[in-house]
Each structure stands twice: as structure tokens, then as C-alpha cells.
Amino acid sequence: MLTTMTPAERVHAALRGEPVDRVPLCFWHHFQPQGSGERLAAVTFEFFKSKFDLDIVKIMPDLPYPEPEEAPSDVTQFQFLPHLDLETPAFKEQLLCIRSLRQQLGPDYPLILTLFSPLTYLFNFMGKHFSGKQRVIEGARRHPAEVEKGLATIAANLQNLMRAAIEAGASGIFFSCMGATSADFTPEEYRRFGRPYDLEALKGAQAGWLNIVHIHADPSQDGDQIYFDQFTDYPVSVLSWSDRLTGPDLSEAMGLTDKCLMGGLWERGPLTHGSETEIENEILGAIAQTQGRRHILANGCSIPDDVSEKPLHIARRMLDQLR
């Protein structure tokens, strides 16, 4: 049996595919920091470190990227999106949050900042619901040049923010990408409207050691399949997706990439309302698929904010018992 590892040792070993004393664990939901980086740092530390002692502290996107002053009514308006500097209030507060957490956690604790892809922000700007996303998709097909100009602007802004986040103390970026599913863009369209701007933004995170790309599938879109193969060469160490919701499963993904995999827990399954037996079965099933190598045990997407924390406590306790 391996001696007990620190969270940093455990996550580093998982990234390298080496033995771990137990599989690293992380889970998350959203907070309401009311625009304050200090407030977000406080609730983040309390949840991830004080309450659950998780292996990764994940700063949620609850200090969101600024939306246009006037809500866009047409995708052609995206070409006028502004270039933002690090004095932008939301950016300043995120960097303040990182510095505060790094000071509390010490120099080595895995700490990641959650940001969305340029395409995901366009979806949000047009409306945080299915129809808004569809309007962007359909609009990109009609007005590709204007949409691409907006994507390039956001990618440049994110690149600067990511670089500053790593310098402020983040171990890496959790980069969430929407649109790369069979219900959204075609694979060819994502290679045009998603991939180039994802990669441009991620240039800012090159100095991070724990960069993660999350391939998002909407839980309401039954049968949605992600374009997993489009992300296997992204410059990140970890691939995250809702493996309990959409393919590939963890065992299949082990043969599709040599990157570390992040998943195994269904965000609307046992982790939110299950019995001890159901939670244990899901944990053991996930670990069995990876043999405990190249694996960070985590929910596939955010847990609903209003559910009981009892299953989370069970999962956390159970993982130590399964060491």
C-alpha cells in the first residue's frame, strides 16, 4: 500500500499515469459571490477545503465574463465585441480570488479557474437557454465572418486572463466548451467555429500544469454525442465530460487518449440523491474502468446547487475507506 499522498502528489501522479494511494476526487456546484472575488474565495475555500477536503479546488465561473451592455439581437453584432484588459472588474475580481486562495492553500495545492470557451460565451450572450444557442448556430452559418470576428476578440481577451490567472497562482484552467455535440454544430463546423478559438485562448494557459478541457453536453438533450476525438490533441493534461450521460465511457476513452480522464460520477445521479450502496457502486464502477490510473474521480458537470450535501459527504468518506 502506498503511503498517504498530499493532494498535489496525488493529482501529479494521476496525470503521469502512476500509482496513487487513492483516486483523486473533486466535485462542485455554483455559488453566489455577488460580484466579489473575496467572497468567492471564502465560499470556495469553505466548500472545497474546509468542508470536503477535496484534491482540487475549483473556482467556479460565478464572476462571469462581461456581457455586452446591450443584449445582442443578431449575431452580426458580435463583430463589435470589445477588447477587455485586466482592469475589467470581473477579471480583477477573479484574479483577486486566485491570489486569496493561493495564500490560504499554500504553494502546491491544485487550484483551477473555470472559464468558458469563446463559443460558449456567444451562446450565453444570446440567451442562456436552448433557443439562444440555436440562434448562434444558425447565425454562424449565415454570417460566419461576423461571428468569427467576435470569437477572435473573446479568445484574445481570455488568453490574457488565463496568462494572468496562472501568474496569480492558479495551477491551470478548467476550460468548458459547448457546441461540440451531435445536437449542435457538425464536426466540420466545430473545427471552424470552435477549435481555432479554443486553441488561441489556451495559449494563455501554457504555464499551467493542471489544464483541463471540459466537453459539455446538455443533460436535457437526450442522446447527444460529443465530438471527443476533436479534443484529444488539445494542449491540456485532462479531459472532462459527462461520461455517465454521453459516450465514450471511461474504459473506451482510456484507449482514445493518453491524457488523464476526469469523470465517473453522474451529476444528477447517486451523487445528488443516492444511497450509500448506489454511491459505492458508481465509484467502484468508475475506478474499475480505469484501474485507478490516469483518473480523477469527478462529476461530469455541475451538481445542482439546491440538493442535499449528504451524498457528497458519503462519497468523500467512502473514497478514503476504499483506499
Rank of each mutant, 00 (worst) to 15 (best):
residue 4 T to Q: 14
residue 5 M to H: 06
residue 11 V to P: 05
residue 12 H to P: 01
residue 14 A to S: 15
residue 16 R to F: 04
residue 19 P to A: 12
residue 22 R to L: 05
residue 22 R to F: 05
residue 25 L to D: 03
residue 27 F to I: 04
residue 30 H to F: 14
residue 31 F to N: 09
residue 31 F to H: 14
residue 34 Q to D: 12
residue 36 S to P: 01
residue 36 S to E: 04
residue 37 G to F: 00
residue 43 V to F: 02
residue 43 V to E: 12
residue 46 E to P: 01
residue 47 F to H: 13
residue 47 F to D: 01
residue 49 K to C: 10
residue 53 D to Q: 14
residue 54 L to V: 03
residue 56 I to S: 00
residue 58 K to T: 02
residue 62 D to W: 04
residue 68 P to H: 06
residue 73 S to M: 06
residue 78 F to C: 07
residue 79 Q to Y: 02
residue 79 Q to D: 04
residue 83 H to Q: 12
residue 84 L to R: 13
residue 85 D to W: 11
residue 92 K to T: 11
residue 93 E to K: 11
residue 102 R to N: 08
residue 104 Q to W: 14
residue 109 Y to M: 07
residue 115 L to M: 13
residue 125 F to D: 02
residue 129 H to I: 00
residue 132 G to N: 04
residue 132 G to L: 00
residue 135 R to M: 12
residue 136 V to I: 11
residue 140 A to R: 06
residue 141 R to E: 11
residue 150 G to P: 09
residue 151 L to C: 02
residue 158 L to K: 04
residue 160 N to P: 00
residue 170 A to T: 08
residue 170 A to V: 10
residue 173 I to Q: 04
residue 178 M to D: 13
residue 182 S to Q: 09
residue 182 S to F: 02
residue 184 D to W: 07
residue 184 D to F: 02
residue 184 D to K: 04
residue 189 E to K: 08
residue 191 R to E: 12
residue 192 R to D: 02
residue 194 G to V: 10
residue 194 G to P: 10
residue 201 A to R: 08
residue 210 L to P: 02
residue 210 L to D: 04
residue 213 V to S: 12
residue 218 D to A: 11
residue 221 Q to S: 10
residue 221 Q to E: 15
residue 223 G to S: 02
residue 225 Q to W: 10
residue 226 I to V: 15
residue 229 D to Q: 15
residue 238 V to D: 03
residue 238 V to H: 05
residue 242 S to T: 06
residue 242 S to Q: 15
residue 244 R to D: 01
residue 244 R to V: 06
residue 247 G to A: 13
residue 250 L to K: 08
residue 250 L to N: 03
residue 251 S to D: 11
residue 256 L to P: 01
residue 259 K to T: 02
residue 259 K to C: 07
residue 262 M to N: 01
residue 262 M to S: 08
residue 272 T to A: 14
residue 272 T to G: 12
residue 275 S to F: 10
residue 277 T to L: 14
residue 279 I to M: 13
residue 283 I to M: 12
residue 290 T to M: 07
residue 291 Q to G: 11
residue 292 G to M: 03
residue 293 R to T: 08
residue 295 H to P: 02
residue 298 A to Y: 01
residue 298 A to S: 15
residue 298 A to Q: 03
residue 304 P to C: 13
residue 305 D to Q: 11
residue 305 D to M: 11
residue 308 S to C: 14
residue 314 I to S: 05
residue 317 R to N: 13
residue 322 L to R: 09
